[in-house]
Design a binder for these strands. Structure first.
Lengths: 117, 117
DNA sequence: GCAAATTAATGATTTATTCAAG
DNA sequence: CTTGAATAAATCATTAATTTGC
């Protein structure tokens, strides 16, 4: 685990500190609103527009918007995955290796059955 | 309003004993216990054993046990499906036709994306 | 309270899918 | 590609729960 920080933060702006972007509350609210509105992976054009609009509230760059959506979507999916795991365990469903999270008709049926009567 | 809800037993009616199985509370409790214990699709042998054990509490046939597990599992899945639908809508995920209820990495990505920076 | 009417729950059937063998 | 076994999904039909008017 000897990770070397490949990305030196000095690129963005000189001044002694690779100080990372710190979104203002307005910016966060706007971004979350767009995300809840269904925008998960904005295109380059959308990112430019968003950056322009949000720059009213404070310093912001396109890459900040890009990373924000990347991270937000990833963390959102993490949460969803956890909820799904809980649901599957509650229902005692058994996902396959091939479909790690996929239940219903694709679930592994453990026991087979003989009709008799 | 004008409906005459008399549904003719076109099928199955048969001879006088056209009454369906009505499980006793003990039988229901036992069956639910086994289901919660993980038994979803009992084998023919298991059905026979279960039928024998539950016949102490009242009249019961193998087919009743078989149908009970079939129905219980199906309706359990229905509930799960509804919960999944809610989750997907909350997260604005879009299931495919092939994987009607399956999210995460198999979900359809609607918008494509260009890396830019 | 009480039954008729309506709705919800669930037992029983039928139909469609999936999967494997040939 | 066809076929048969297994079973999931959809549907039908009956019973129980609930509502409603008296």
């Amino acid at each position: 685990m000897t990770s070397v920080p490949v990305r030196a933060p000095t690129r963005g702006g000189g001044g002694g500190g690779g100080s990372r972007w710190c979104p203002t509350p307005e910016q966060v609210m706007m971004l979350e609103g767009m995300y809840r509105g269904g925008l998960k992976t904005p295109t380059a054009t959308q990112i430019q527009q968003i950056t322009a609009r949000l720059s009213i509230y404070g310093k912001i760059q396109g890459k900040n918007v890009f990373y924000w959506f990347q991270n937000h979507k990833a963390r959102d999916r993490q949460k969803l995955r956890k909820k799904l795991m809980v649901l599957y365990q509650q229902h005692r469903l058994y996902p396959t290796h091939h479909h790690p999270f996929l239940p219903l008709h694709q679930v592994v049926i453990i026991q087979h059955f003989f009709f008799f009567l």
